[in-house]
Amino acid sequence: MLRLVGVAWWLQVKMRSRSAFDGLLSLLWPGFFATTIFMMFRQGDASGPALLSAAVGSSAMGIWSAVSTTSAFALQMERRQGTLELLVLAPQPFALLLVPLTLSMATIGAYSMVATLLWGRIAFGIEISIADPVAFVLAVVVTVFAIGMLGMLIAISSIRYRSAWAVGSALEMPVWLICGFLVAINDLPAWVRPLSAVLAPTWGVAAMRSAATGHSPWANLGWCLLTAASYGVIAVLVSRWMVHSARANATLALS
């Protein structure tokens, strides 16, 4: 199973790295938002930990950007390429086959994270002093994994919808907002907070921020892994139902 995920992940990363134009967008799109946000914080005379916190949150935005639209569109692309049937027929759980797919998207997003942190340092002079670098890197890896798992759940849930990319695209900013990438969860309306709590990126970004500012990230990392694992369980159940429905109604290629 690990070999399957590892080999397929590497294959997908290579495939997704082929388009220079797409690669440019994955760096530039979150970069535009990060630049605006750095300028806003600079305008508000933010400094020290506040600016570092903004830099960490902005840099993580790219990971979600790389996953939100593409994961929703992933199965539509497989359908267009004629490979969806092969994936469904493969002698492995369908959900498992999608893990490397969306994990590769999140990995590409991690490029933009590094680029955004460098951009903040070079263009805005933000001092990127990470208090616990090992825990920070671990938090990034776990966040990438968790966002990949969330992407997988979105991909599976949208298998029946031809226009799923629009839904995925529309999810980009809500997740940035309610997962506390840049705004403290406590500043959001109370009814939003339970929603934030069930989204793995909330815990991942909190862990990254904790590691960067010298607080313990472990509890947040634990919650991040737990929510990500729950996405896996839900995805397996949803995929079985979706695939069964598609087979029974002969709609796999027609949705």
């Binding site: 946000i37 806003m40 933010a46 705004v183």
Partner: peptide, 24 residues
Amino acid sequence: IPTFLFAPLFQIFLFVYIGRTAGV
């Protein structure tokens, strides 16, 4: 609905809240 109605509203909310956080 997601592209023209939902996304613009969330872009507004995102930056309103970031603006409040940044104090600008």
